[in-house]
Design a protein around this nucleic acid. Sequence first.
DNA 1: TACAACTTTGGCGATAATACCAAATAGCCA
DNA 2: TGGCTATTTGGTATTATCGCCAAAGTTGTA
Lengths: 106, 106
Amino acid sequence: MDPKTASKFEIRANVIKAMAHPTRLFIVDELSRREKCVSELTALIGADTSTVSKHLAVLKKAGIVRDEKRGTEVYYTLRCPCIMNFFQCVESVIRENAQEQLELLT
Amino acid sequence: MDPKTASKFEIRANVIKAMAHPTRLFIVDELSRREKCVSELTALIGADTSTVSKHLAVLKKAGIVRDEKRGTEVYYTLRCPCIMNFFQCVESVIRENAQEQLELLT
DNA sequence: TACAACTTTGGCGATAATACCAAATAGCCA
DNA sequence: TGGCTATTTGGTATTATCGCCAAAGTTGTA
C-alpha cells in the first residue's frame, strides 16, 4: 500500500477508533439528544469522573464532539450530527447477524 | 447505565471496533469495488498473509464480510454494502476538522 | 484569600490488539 | 500418494487501551 493511501485510511481509522467503545457510543447517543456536561454524563454512565473525562477527550481529539466551558461546568455537543446515520448501518449489520443466526437454526 | 443499555452499546461497539483499523478499512474499501481473495488483498496491502487473514477473521466475526471458498482460494465479499455510507460521515468529520484547523490559522 | 464544585491530568496495573514467524490444514493435480 | 498453492492457526514480543485513584487546575462565591 502506498504511503498516501495508508495515511488516508489511518486518518479514517482514527475517527472510527474514537467511537469504538461502548461508553463513547453511549456518550454520542446522549449528545445526539442534547448537549450535556461532564457530571451529567458521569451520573448516567456510572463510572469515575476521570474516566468519563478521558473518553470525552478521545471524542474531542477525533473531532466528534465540541466542548464549551460555562462557569465551572464543561458542556459537550456533537460536532457532526450526521454521526448518527453511522449507526443505521451498524444496526443493519447487527440485524443481519441476528437473522443469519436464526437461519442457521432451521 | 443499566445492563440492557450497556449490552446494546457493547454490541454496537463490537461492529465498530472491527473497522477501527487502517488495514481493515482498506479491505472494506477494496471489497466495496468487488470481491477479492486473501492473496489479492495481501498483495495490495503488503503485509504477511497471516496478518491479512487475521484481519479478515475480525471482519467476518463482526458480520461485515462473508467468505466463500473456491478451490484453494477464499473469496471475501462485503455483507452489508451500506457500510460505505458509514464513510461519508467519517469523511465529513475529517473535512470539518481540516476546516477548523484552517480557521485557527487566520 | 479561602473554600467548594467541576473537570482534567498523571500514574499504574490489568487486559486487549497487533504483527511477524513457524507450523498446521485444505484442496488440486500429476 | 506426494507435492504445490492458498489459507488459517498457534505462539510470542511489543504496543495500545482502559479504569481507577490521587493530585492538580479552574471558576464562582463568601
